[in-house]
């Protein structure tokens, strides 16, 4: 049997590449699907907002339901664990202002996310 011809043909290479890509992707997902979400809430001046209520909602194609809530700490930081979503819908309520349903698309369900940009509330 000509193993070289079997290994080096367009079918083996194409489907092999697909299988390899799926495998690598699943390994990456496996190491990054704890559902950790961290971020910071700041006001328009860039100062951290303490005690802001951050709500995480589930986005479906027909509705948006709140699944978890938390409150920011002294540095304006907040975190959720095991959020279980493939799209984050965040709302913030505070004395300094609010944010209404900011959607952050993810690559896979329960992806770990550290928000690079703080959530800026406005009155």
């Amino acid at each position: 049997m000509n193993w070289r011809a079997i290994l080096i043909n367009r079918f083996t290479i194409t489907f092999g590449a697909i299988v390899l890509a799926v495998l690598l992707w699943n390994i990456y997902v496996g190491f990054n699907d704890d559902g950790r979400l961290t971020g910071q809430v700041v006001d328009e001046n860039g100062d951290p907002v303490r005690g802001a209520q951050v709500m995480l909602a589930r986005k479906t194609v027909t509705s948006v339901d709140t699944v978890a809530e938390t409150t920011t700490g002294d540095t304006g930081n907040f975190s959720f664990q095991n959020h279980g979503q493939f799209a984050l819908v965040l709302s913030v309520n505070s004395d300094a202002g609010s944010i209404s349903r900011q959607v952050i698309p993810l690559w896979f369900r329960n992806q770990n996310v550290d928000l690079a940009e703080p959530l800026v509330v406005s009155p």
Binding site: T60, A87, L106
Partner: peptide, 12 residues
């Protein structure tokens, strides 16, 4: 352009 709709279709 973004691939989010593929993610949404995959999970929906």
């Amino acid at each position: 352009p973004n691939l989010f709709f593929y993610v949404e279709a995959w999970y929906t």
